[in-house]
């Protein structure tokens, strides 16, 4: 199976505090990988390492290697902007730009110098269709994105990420701010998206992880305790702590 990221000996410090301890993991292409674990265990931090969003945090120090297609993304010569176009991200809270729906989608392509109107229109339609939002918004593309509901906004953010044609989409608890109906829509969306994209999702909901993911990694205190196929993790965990967590004994 093709791997998308090979992570070896990754350590991350926020100032003095070590947030990730010696992470070793291979993430697979065109699969949905879920990171589960209690709050503050480092799963979001690890996710943000994959597109170097941690660079923005002051006092954050990273050691180790993250290889993407055989190249270490933490090498100095890596173009961060290039990396982030290949590794898109969807955040915990829907964060559409305060612009129109159309402008939200074309923002990324425009930043990369695409000016052709027809092509931009095509991208908008394709991305919104892929994000299952087209039917709901196609007649009000030029209205403010802030007028959409929370679930629609989150799907817009996914569409916005898709518009860049990334290889990987990182999702940081994408449904934690949404109601159950909006959540199930996003989950359906993830199911269809995994044919074209590698999806890595951080979630607090064990049900969600078991529903949408192919692989699951269990994080605890900055360590990966267990990483395997989702069915194995949920039905036959090898580690006692994993079992305790997924059966709801702590966390």
């Amino acid at each position: 199976m093709d791997t998308c990221f090979n992570v070896t000996d990754l350590n991350l410090y926020y100032g003095e505090k070590q947030a990730l301890k010696n992470i070793n993991i291979d993430l697979y292409k065109n699969k949905v990988t879920a990171f589960i674990g209690p709050s503050g265990c480092g799963k979001s931090t690890f996710l943000r390492c994959l597109n170097r969003m941690n660079d923005l945090i002051e006092g954050c120090k990273i050691e180790g290697n993250i290889l993407k297609d055989g190249i270490n993304i933490y090498e100095t010569k890596t173009d961060v902007v290039e990396l982030r176009t290949k590794v898109g991200m969807v955040f915990q809270k829907p964060n559409p730009f305060p612009m129109s729906i159309y402008e939200n989608i074309v923002y990324g392509p425009k930043c990369h110098g695409l000016k052709n109107k027809a092509e931009l229109n095509k991208i908008v339609e394709k991305s919104l269709k892929q994000a299952a939002l087209w039917d709901e918004v196609h007649d009000r593309l030029h209205e403010s994105a802030l007028g959409l509901s929370g679930g629609q906004q989150q799907r817009l953010c996914i569409a916005r990420a898709i518009a860049m044609q990334p290889e990987v989409i990182l999702m940081d608890e994408p449904t934690s701010a949404l109601d159950p109906i909006a959540t199930s829509k996003i989950e359906e969306l993830i199911e269809t998206l995994k044919n074209d994209y590698t999806i890595i999702i951080v979630t607090h909901s064990m049900q969600q992880a078991s529903r949408v993911s192919d692989y699951t990694a269990f994080f605890l205190l900055g360590d990966i305790i267990e990483y395997d196929k989702t069915s194995v993790i949920f039905q036959n965990p090898k580690d006692k702590r994993t079992e305790d967590y997924i059966t709801g004994r702590f966390g």
């Binding site: 969003m53 290039e82 982030r84 955040f91 964060n95 730009f97 305060p98 930043c111 916005r160």
Partner: peptide
């Protein structure tokens, strides 16, 4: 979160500032 969103879309820092942050 708006800066994060822009940067995660592969926008450069100056693009983020001039296209997203300043208009706000």
């Amino acid at each position: 979160s708006l800066r994060d969103a822009s940067l995660s879309l592969g926008a450069t820092k100056s693009q983020t500032i001039f296209k997203v942050v300043l208009p706000c």
